[in-house]
Write a protein that binds this DNA or RNA. Sequence first.
DNA 1: TCCTAAGCGAGACGGTACGTCTTGTCTTCCA
DNA 2: TGGAAGACAAGACGTACCGTCTCGCTTAGGA
Lengths: 194, 194, 194, 194
Amino acid sequence: MKARAVDRRIQRTRQLLHGSLMALIQEKGFEALSVQDIIDQANVGRATFYAHFDSKEDLLASGIENLRASLKERQRQARSAGGSDERLFAFSRELFTHANEHRTIFRAMVGKRSGAVVQQLLQKMLVDLVREEVRGTWAEKENETPIEAVSQFIGGGLFGLLMWWGNGKMRMAVDDVDLMFRRLAIPSLKAAAR
Amino acid sequence: MKARAVDRRIQRTRQLLHGSLMALIQEKGFEALSVQDIIDQANVGRATFYAHFDSKEDLLASGIENLRASLKERQRQARSAGGSDERLFAFSRELFTHANEHRTIFRAMVGKRSGAVVQQLLQKMLVDLVREEVRGTWAEKENETPIEAVSQFIGGGLFGLLMWWGNGKMRMAVDDVDLMFRRLAIPSLKAAAR
Amino acid sequence: MKARAVDRRIQRTRQLLHGSLMALIQEKGFEALSVQDIIDQANVGRATFYAHFDSKEDLLASGIENLRASLKERQRQARSAGGSDERLFAFSRELFTHANEHRTIFRAMVGKRSGAVVQQLLQKMLVDLVREEVRGTWAEKENETPIEAVSQFIGGGLFGLLMWWGNGKMRMAVDDVDLMFRRLAIPSLKAAAR
Amino acid sequence: MKARAVDRRIQRTRQLLHGSLMALIQEKGFEALSVQDIIDQANVGRATFYAHFDSKEDLLASGIENLRASLKERQRQARSAGGSDERLFAFSRELFTHANEHRTIFRAMVGKRSGAVVQQLLQKMLVDLVREEVRGTWAEKENETPIEAVSQFIGGGLFGLLMWWGNGKMRMAVDDVDLMFRRLAIPSLKAAAR
DNA sequence: TCCTAAGCGAGACGGTACGTCTTGTCTTCCA
DNA sequence: TGGAAGACAAGACGTACCGTCTCGCTTAGGA
């Protein structure tokens, strides 16, 4: 399948917008951004923006989708490698590492000025990842704690932890916070599977 | 000290606003509301609204404050009664019950249209309650998982669970969802305290 | 009837807008103006503009209404003074004089950059004035050239003349162009009344 | 010189555009049309449109040019035939007849929704035709009413009449309205020539 | 027969103005 | 004097058009 020139142009525009969004989030936070800010930064026309995305929230969601995909891939690889406890929530290491590496943008997204839409999206993504994990761990049977409930609990918890880590100064090492998460989450999971 | 008539008038205005907010949240969700909507419903002047509250978020926060106070009180009573496992997270029963009794407004606040500010406030409140609980359970020592981290994890998890319960049809009984929460949260807490 | 303070405020806003429109028409012509230009000049909010007028055309029309009223009054006075030929189209003197006195704005309204809406409004106004005159001159009878047709012809002609006078350098004296109009229009009127 | 196929292709495009414009003017009026409407109707690319015309106004002007040419030709023939009063403004018969035959499009161009640009072009065309006539009638001498002024007056008047005829239901017969015009215009012309 | 050049459709794009909406401040006046 | 009424400046929103542009397809006319 050959990429037509026009498609390349479209991709370029979308990336310009994603890039500008990220740059501006670090500068003034997501909530404070206007569509005008974004398109000025990207040097893109207003109509063009709306041709690609419904709103700045949509643009953000599309950006977060990339992260989700990358983490999902990471998760898939880890799960195919082994099944011991250490492999449970394998994506979490990757998640904390990623956050640590992009700490400027990460702290902006998790911080006070971030706007709650961002956080809802992140939480939803985390729950997704967790659900995948839980699903792999046990086949749902009747009379048990539903997979969905467990996923929501652990995903919500992970998100809480991430917020706390990010809103503090991220002084704790990646390994430590990851360990902490696993120490909190795995007992829950086991208990629910009982 | 006698309550002056003027104070009563002020109270009346504040309650009119709170009432209108709640009524409108059920009708169209928090995000979709404008200050104009609220003051029309309350039959209150624009300037008056801003004399009492900074924004619709402020009004909401002030409303949620009541819930927090009532749950805190409930928690205090339960904790003074005993210390066994069954008493851990005693407020949760009250929380789920309350949600169940006011299910219309609760589901509106937890639903898609609720606006994320609402949810941030709720989550913050839950973390507060959990922190209180964790604090009572163990005295923080060095080298342990920090109280704050555990609280954020369990508080976040509880919020996730609540969202899931509310956004489904709340088919699950109060007792069952409460039990589920405790089955997920208590192992975490214990593990962290190790 | 006492003018309430709020009414005075509203009047002030409307006059600010009218004034800004006139100032800007001279500067860049009507067509080239945006609503934003006008409200910037007037230091007025966008919503306020639209609360008072539907569009810049509406604002203009409302401004021209004043001119029409003033010319109608002038016409009324002249007609009550006498009925000889010299009194026919008495308003025309006033019209040319007015144009001469406000030549900057007049030439802007009649010029190339004026935008055709302006001109339609002016022409309509002139036809109105002429119709009034024709009506006073003869009572319509069957089988005659209809009053309306005559009015449209002479009104259109007057407008053509005005445009020509304004778009040239208005070198011709007021008296001369007025005389010219009467020499052209009165024979038409007489012929039609035959 | 043989017409190359490429030229035929170009002509075809221009005619497609003219045709679409006319069709759409009748449908929704000139003002309401966008370039997009026109090229959709003509099934022509956007760039192609701008390769041929500067704007929809330009397209219209080019269309009206045809009418002007045809009327000019008609005028030339009539003037070479004789010089009596009956031959003065000989083109007017043709004009009214033409309008009557294409009454749908004519009424659309002269009506409320027509957009004033159309009308300016028409008026300009009429003044042109009249000027030609006046020029033929008398050689300009100093101290007389200038040819240009007379042309503007009569051209404007003719346009007023046309508008009135078209905006009414065109109930009046071609001959009658033509007669009316001549009865109004010729006395003016004579008076000016005195 | 192939090749080159032009006309063209399609449509992405930067830009500008629009008319609407909401916010938070302010002023007036009533009870 | 607290509050209802509501005018207002500010400015973001999503939509509509504009005129420019790049891209490939088609098709003629010369090689």
